[in-house]
Simulated assay, not measured.
Amino acid sequence: MHTVPLSEFRANASAMLDLVEQGETVRILRHGKPVAELVPLKAEEAAAKVPSWKRPFEPVVLPPGVSLSQAVLDERNESPW
């Protein structure tokens, strides 16, 4: 773990983030007291941060002879709310 005063962190923020990327923890002090810790993300947390619109999805398969607009209307009518 690296412990740095706030002034040093401000001056070397990029280098501190490089350390965190390498798996190190950086503790930031203000007036000699710890106020924050930068810790690396766990692999599953990093994967969970992918927005839903970037995640893969299964394509919609419509029954033969049904248009997309009709399928949407049917789904709306079947919805309980």
Rank of each mutant, 00 (worst) to 15 (best):
residue 67 S to I: 04
residue 41 L to E: 12
residue 30 R to S: 07
residue 55 R to V: 13
residue 80 P to I: 00
residue 68 L to I: 05
residue 1 M to I: 12
residue 53 W to H: 12
residue 5 P to I: 11
residue 74 D to G: 00
residue 16 M to G: 08
residue 14 S to W: 04
residue 76 R to T: 10
residue 32 G to L: 11
residue 72 V to E: 10
residue 40 P to H: 02
residue 66 V to Q: 06
residue 21 E to V: 06
residue 34 P to T: 01
residue 3 T to N: 10
residue 17 L to Y: 14
residue 70 Q to T: 15
residue 28 I to L: 00
residue 80 P to G: 02
residue 55 R to G: 04
residue 10 R to F: 07
residue 12 N to R: 07
residue 29 L to D: 07
residue 71 A to K: 01
residue 76 R to P: 07
residue 25 T to F: 06
residue 15 A to C: 08
residue 55 R to Y: 08
residue 69 S to A: 09
residue 21 E to M: 04
residue 57 F to E: 14
residue 63 P to C: 02
residue 45 E to Y: 05
residue 43 A to Q: 12
residue 30 R to K: 13
residue 23 G to L: 05
residue 72 V to F: 07
residue 56 P to F: 04
residue 26 V to N: 00
residue 23 G to K: 01
residue 10 R to K: 03
residue 5 P to E: 14
residue 37 E to C: 00
residue 79 S to E: 08
residue 63 P to Q: 09
residue 11 A to V: 11
residue 1 M to T: 13
residue 50 V to G: 10
residue 20 V to P: 02
residue 14 S to R: 07
residue 1 M to Y: 09
residue 21 E to D: 12
residue 41 L to M: 15
residue 26 V to K: 00
residue 46 A to R: 11
residue 9 F to T: 00
residue 62 L to E: 04
residue 72 V to P: 13
residue 37 E to W: 00
residue 57 F to H: 14
residue 54 K to Y: 11
residue 65 G to A: 11
residue 45 E to T: 10
residue 38 L to Y: 01
residue 66 V to C: 02
residue 28 I to S: 00
residue 48 A to L: 08
residue 47 A to E: 04
residue 75 E to Y: 02
residue 37 E to Q: 02
residue 45 E to K: 07
residue 6 L to M: 14
residue 78 E to C: 01
residue 4 V to S: 06
residue 36 A to L: 09
residue 61 V to H: 10
residue 74 D to S: 01
residue 20 V to M: 05
residue 65 G to C: 09
residue 80 P to N: 02
residue 34 P to G: 02
residue 37 E to T: 01
residue 58 E to H: 12
residue 47 A to C: 05
residue 51 P to D: 07
residue 40 P to A: 09
residue 15 A to W: 07
residue 2 H to V: 09
residue 1 M to V: 14
residue 39 V to T: 15
residue 72 V to K: 09
residue 53 W to V: 15
residue 16 M to A: 15
residue 5 P to F: 05
residue 59 P to W: 07
residue 71 A to G: 01
residue 29 L to E: 13
residue 48 A to F: 06
residue 12 N to T: 08
residue 43 A to R: 13
residue 50 V to T: 15
residue 27 R to A: 12
residue 60 V to R: 09
residue 73 L to D: 08
residue 14 S to G: 13
residue 1 M to S: 13
residue 5 P to C: 11
residue 1 M to D: 11
residue 50 V to F: 03
residue 47 A to Q: 13
residue 24 E to I: 00
residue 57 F to D: 12
residue 57 F to A: 15
residue 22 Q to E: 11
residue 41 L to D: 12
residue 78 E to S: 06
residue 44 E to V: 03
residue 17 L to M: 15
residue 45 E to W: 06
residue 40 P to G: 03
residue 60 V to Y: 03
residue 44 E to H: 05
residue 75 E to N: 05
residue 66 V to N: 03
residue 9 F to K: 00
residue 24 E to A: 13
residue 4 V to H: 03
residue 29 L to V: 01
residue 15 A to I: 11
residue 57 F to K: 15
residue 74 D to V: 01
residue 42 K to L: 06
residue 71 A to Q: 03
residue 66 V to L: 04
residue 25 T to W: 04
residue 53 W to I: 15
residue 47 A to N: 07
residue 67 S to E: 08
residue 50 V to S: 10
residue 49 K to P: 11
residue 36 A to N: 00
